[in-house]
Design a protein around this nucleic acid. Sequence first.
DNA 1: TATGCTACCTACCAAACGGTCGGTAACAAT
DNA 2: ATTGTTACCGACCGTTTGGTAGGTAGCATA
Lengths: 209, 209
Amino acid sequence: MPVKRERDPLPSDGRAAEVYLTAAQIILEKGYDATSVSDIAKALGITKAGLYHYIHGKNELLFNIMEYGLDQLEREVAQPAKQIADAEARLRFMITKHARIVTRGHGAVTILVDETRALTPAQNRKITRRKRAYLDFLRATLDELKGDGKLHKVDLTVASFSLLGMINWLSRWYRADGPLNEQQVADQVVNIALHGLTRPAPRRIRVAL
Amino acid sequence: MPVKRERDPLPSDGRAAEVYLTAAQIILEKGYDATSVSDIAKALGITKAGLYHYIHGKNELLFNIMEYGLDQLEREVAQPAKQIADAEARLRFMITKHARIVTRGHGAVTILVDETRALTPAQNRKITRRKRAYLDFLRATLDELKGDGKLHKVDLTVASFSLLGMINWLSRWYRADGPLNEQQVADQVVNIALHGLTRPAPRRIRVAL
DNA sequence: TATGCTACCTACCAAACGGTCGGTAACAAT
DNA sequence: ATTGTTACCGACCGTTTGGTAGGTAGCATA
């Protein structure tokens, strides 16, 4: 008797993994609604009925890809970040790592932010809850910085979402064959996020003699 | 004999305007692919065939809405900005104004950034060209600031897109019934963009006596 | 009264969609 | 030799889709 599982984790190898990876790539390119189940099947060289051997519905396929994206975010960004004691260093790490996942372009994380509307309400709740947890962690780091007096007077909500906006937007424009590599772009984003675009006017130091 | 026109500008009043406005709102909520022509017709209280009296196809409807979004951006942001001589003031104006159009949430500008995949190649080229012109103008302003020595050492491409990312992302999270009004959010974004999140460590001024 | 235009409607169509059914070839274990 | 499982396939189904053909009621102009 099979154990009832919360959800099927995406298999990391074998044919099933190939199915999910291919699906993620096509959905990333064409969008969820514009991608038919047959499109995915065709890309795999099988028929639609054959594909249904691996998936339990188009919706669940999307949901699983999104869960995988969140897994990735937690595994590669949030969890390692929790080991970093210094808040500023932690923030730098998170931005860099998150940005690189986006520019790496394997799809799951981008689909995660782009296609929320296609989920059922129940699926949406789960995904939203996990996304909020990630956001809260980011915000907590900013709050810690604030406590250290290292932050400008900024609203934490606006700050958190602005960070995510910069990072997530990378998927819309960054191309790996452009002039900057992933690390360079990530570094630039860190700089802009932390120090902004303009530099303060040089302080005029007047010393009364 | 009717004059052959480049494109039909969106009418600003009358029933036709109502049609386009309603369509934009629904597409904004549900996404282009998930919105059927009947959905739009239903919202207008007419049948699909009746709606086709006003539009010439689902694609052209989307295209027209996007053109309207670009018109809006040029009319309310780019053109007034060109009257501002000081580059820093111009940048502030552009960010503020653009952000407020997004938070105002009437749809066209957001659809513009969200649904590019649904266009035909020919439509896509036109829209992309106009978007690039806007981007180039933004970048030119940054370049001017750079010449004045008012900019950190940042890559202009990354900087421009990071700005757009922060601004466009607003549509994903900003709610008018939240704690901050549109102007406050716009100001916050300006601050983060120009000065960043962290403030420089206080300079220790040592004066040799 | 006739003509023409606007603003729709009912009824329909071919295509595409997500999904299912009953099969089958290949291989492994008993 | 039988049984079970995996990995598919061809054919089909009901529904929805974007889009069209042809009509009509109401109003304006001549």
